[in-house]
Amino acid sequence: MKRRIFCLGAAAIVLAGPMPAVAGELIHATLYKNPQCTCCEGYAAYLRKNGFSVDVKPSNEVAEISREAGVPEKFQGCHTMFVDGYVVDGHVPADIVHKLLSERPPIAGITLPGMPLGAPGMTGTKASTFTIYAVTKDGTPPKVYATE
């Protein structure tokens, strides 16, 4: 049990540093989620079926962790994941995460803003194209990374 929770967000970023991904084995990811949100568990389960091992950590500061990782508020998803040196925010489809990890672009990571219906781990039917944005830490506006 933690003595106090001061600076937990900062500690989380350090813990979530780059982890080597080994071809043919599961890719390790750490997913921070609101302790009272259940949909993020659905996303973790989806990733586990798609080549990832996922460590789910509850946090009351997902918004701050996401912001620190380079995701602007208007582009935040409902949870924040760190995988192989990148941030992946929201319900991004697994093939796009794999694309990110194979292309290894010089960005902080990618995000699918909000909680679109029909996205992996979400209920509902997909109503429109998912637009996944690339985010950086240098303050440049997010650019479209992929659509699906």
């Binding site: 106090r4 929770i5 937990l8 949100c37 009351n60 500061e61």
Partner: peptide, 12 residues
């Protein structure tokens, strides 16, 4: 996002 979930819970 916080407004739609459990609000701005802090760390201290």
């Amino acid at each position: 996002m916080e407004a739609a979930m459990s609000g701005r819970v802090g760390n201290t």
